[in-house]
Each structure stands twice: as structure tokens, then as C-alpha cells.
């Protein structure tokens, strides 16, 4: 078999395969739910009711989507430039650590000054965490997939050390947990009385900013050029290594803002279970969004619906929540295949 490029893909050609990919992932989940003894229709009904069925559920879903927008953007930005950042998890924790270091009383500033400081501090920390693997890539040619993955383990152990040592809450009854943020360091709720914080709005703003960078600036153009063909980009005079490092700063910073938003908006303190794999799920989000920054928002909402809904479904009828993870992993694989089919036709030899 042979792949033949399609020069002018029709609208149908561009939309049908991705749609089929999503439907197929639902079918796989339905089959597995059946095997586990759950009626697939009941399972999906419970998933959607659990995620969207009440005001409380809907707000929970938006809250869950927030860190996924940040990590999804981080991955999308990096993957566009073919910088394979699988380390959003570590970068997110880096942002959370800085938020806790500066926000638990070290800086006793009023909220309008303190919150931006924390956000910027967090972004810088995350940027630095990704800068190391990015420099190993540009200087020594070390594959960043493996280094960013290994950094996830290293950084989580570092956080574990901090939470049992320097950052341990003296009032924490021995639990490995940081002190609580001072009130000025907490992101307020968007509407008083509703459990949705400004981190969600910040995530939306970031998505728009990334979209503008991607489409309207030289850096965005350079990032895409490097991603499509580094040799050609270098030949055209684009400083490839510099662009990769800039991409790393942006990507790491975005993931770390997710850590800031989770701690300052939702949790109020840092524990080792802050992220149930938001960094890895960000990869699924970014791929489902076809690496489009605005698409990331939609994809993050979709993924959040599946996760929040699966939690509530599992409580109701006992089909394991890992159904959500399987569904999203298969959606990821099917989506990359679907993207291929939007651009190529399969011909037999």
C-alpha cells in the first residue's frame, strides 16, 4: 500500500475522519463497558449527566477543564515546533511550587499585585524546567522525549522532598502538604457563590494569546516553519535553535500557569496528588484539538466531561473510571490516524 497526498482536500475530507475517530473511541468504550457488566447506553447517559446534568456538575467540569487547557496549550505550542514536550507534568508542579513558596506569606502584598507576581513567577519556573531538556536537545542533540519524561519523575521526587522538608506545613498533622496560601494569594471566584475561579478565565485568555502568537507574529511563523521542516527553516535564515528555546519557554510557562491556577484557584495548598496526570492528558487534549490553540479549549472541555462524568458513572454503577482513560488514549491514536486520512489517500500497489 502507498499513501498519496490529496492536493485540495474537500471540507468533507477534512471533517469526516476526525468525527469517525471520536465515534470509534466511543464504540470502544461501549464495548469495554459491556464487558465490565455495564449497559453502554446507561454508561454514557450517566457520564453526560454526571458532567453536565446539574449546575454543580457543570462547574466541576469547567474546573477540571482549566488545568487541561493550560497543559493542552503547552503541548500544542511545543508539538507545532516539533519540540516533543512530554514533561508538562513537571512544569505544572514547578508552577505550583513557586506559587506556594511566594504565596504563603513570603510576599505580604495586596492581591492585585501579588496574583500577577505569582503567575509570572510560576510561568518562569516552568519555563526554566523545560529549558534544560530543550538546551540538551539544541546543544547535544539529546532526544527531549526521554529527558522530559525522566524529569517528570525527578521533579515529583523533588516536590515530595519539599513537602516533607522545607515546605512542610507545621500545622499539617504530619501529612506531606504545604501551608495554605494567604487570602491575598487566592484567585477569587468569577461569580460569588459559584465554585468556578478566575483560573478558568485566565486559561481562556492564554488560549487567545497563544492563538494570536501563532497566527499573527513572526515567532508563530518561525515556530511553525521549524516544526514543518527544520532544514528548510535554517536555510531560509530562521535561527532554529533559538526558536526551539523560545518555544520551550512559552510551552513550559503555559503548563506552569496550570499549576498556579490549580493551587491559587482550587486547592489553596500543595500536595503530591495535585495533578492526576494533567501533563500527560494535555497531550491527548492537544492532539484532539489538532494542535490548534482555540481547539484546545473545546478539546479540554470534552476531555473534562469524560473524566468528571466517568467519576460519577463509576460511583453509580461500578464500571471502573479507567474507562475514561482508555477512551481518551484510543481517541488520541485514532485522531492521529484520522489526521493522516484528511491529507492522504491510501492506494494499493
Amino acid at each position: 500500500m502507498r499513501l498519496e497526498p490529496i492536493s485540495q482536500p474537500s471540507l468533507q475530507r477534512r471533517l469526516l475522519p476526525p468525527t469517525l475517530a471520536i465515534l470509534a473511541s466511543f464504540a470502544i468504550a461501549a464495548l469495554l463497558a459491556q464487558i465490565a457488566g455495564g449497559n453502554p447506553f446507561a454508561v454514557f447517559d450517566l457520564i453526560f449527566k454526571g458532567a453536565l446534568g446539574s449546575k454543580f456538575a457543570l462547574l466541576e467540569t469547567l474546573n477540571r477543564a482549566t488545568p487541561l487547557i493550560f497543559t493542552g496549550l503547552a503541548v500544542a505550542v511545543a508539538f507545532r515546533a516539533k519540540l516533543w514536550n512530554i514533561g508538562a507534568e513537571a512544569q505544572l508542579y514547578a508552577g505550583a511550587v513557586i506559587t506556594v513558596v511566594l504565596g504563603t506569606g513570603a510576599l505580604a502584598w495586596p492581591a492585585p499585585v501579588l496574583l500577577p507576581t505569582l503567575a509570572i513567577g510560576a510561568a518562569l519556573a516552568g519555563a526554566i524546567v523545560l529549558l534544560i531538556p530543550a538546551m540538551l536537545k539544541t546543544r547535544f542533540g539529546v532526544d527531549e522525549v526521554v529527558t522530559t519524561l525522566l524529569f517528570n519523575f525527578i521533579f515529583l521526587l523533588f516536590v515530595s522532598y519539599l513537602l516533607e522538608g522545607p515546605l512542610k506545613d507545621p500545622m499539617g498533622m504530619g501529612w506531606p502538604k504545604s501551608a495554605r496560601l494567604i487570602p491575598e494569594a487566592r484567585l477569587p471566584r468569577i461569580v460569588e457563590g459559584l465554585r468556578l475561579h478566575w483560573g478558568f478565565a485566565l486559561a481562556l485568555i492564554c488560549a487567545v494569546v497563544v492563538w494570536v502568537i501563532d497566527r499573527k507574529t513572526t515567532l508563530g511563523f518561525e515556530m511553525r516553519a521549524v516544526g514543518q521542516n527544520p532544514e528548510a527553516a535554517a536555510f531560509a535564515g530562521i535561527p532554529v535553535a533559538k526558536v526551539i528555546l523560545k518555544t520551550a519557554l512559552l510551552s513550559g510557562g503555559l503548563a506552569a500557569m496550570g499549576g498556579f491556577s490549580e493551587v491559587a484557584g482550587l486547592k489553596g495548598s500543595l500536595t503530591l496528588d495535585l495533578s492526576p496526570g494533567f501533563g500527560y492528558t494535555g497531550i491527548v487534549v492537544a492532539m484532539l484539538a489538532l494542535l490548534n490553540p482555540l481547539g484546545v479549549v473545546a478539546a479540554a472541555l470534552f476531555v473534562a466531561i469524560i473524566f468528571v462524568g466517568a467519576d460519577s458513572m463509576s460511583r453509580a454503577i461500578g464500571v471502573p473510571t479507567y474507562l475514561a482513560d482508555i477512551m481518551l488514549a484510543s481517541a488520541l491514536l485514532l485522531m492521529v490516524l484520522a489526521i493522516l486520512f484528511t491529507k492522504f489517500r491510501v492506494r494499493r500497489d
Binding site: 500500500m1 499513501l3 469495554l32 465490565a36 508539538f79 516533543w84 512530554i86 522525549v145 500527560y280 497531550i283 491527548v284 492532539m287 471502573p320 479507567y322 474507562l323 482513560d325 482508555i326 481518551l328 488514549a329 484510543s330 488520541l332 491514536l333 492521529v336 490516524l337 493522516l340
Partner: peptide
């Protein structure tokens, strides 16, 4: 996925890891 279709080995690999891990945990439960 990675050979005849030539998809990104990075993305396919991470996808297989996510899939194999979640299928395992699901089956365990």
C-alpha cells in the same frame, strides 16, 4: 500505525503507553 501509515513515532508511542496502562488498570479493576 507507525510503519505502513508512518505516523509520528513520538505520538503513537505515548498513545500506546497511555492505552496499555489504562487497559491494564481497567482490567485489574
Amino acid at each position: 500505525l507507525s510503519v505502513p501509515f508512518g505516523l509520528s513515532q513520538h505520538v503513537v508511542g505515548v498513545g500506546i503507553t497511555l492505552l496499555a496502562t489504562s487497559v491494564t488498570f481497567y482490567t485489574y479493576r
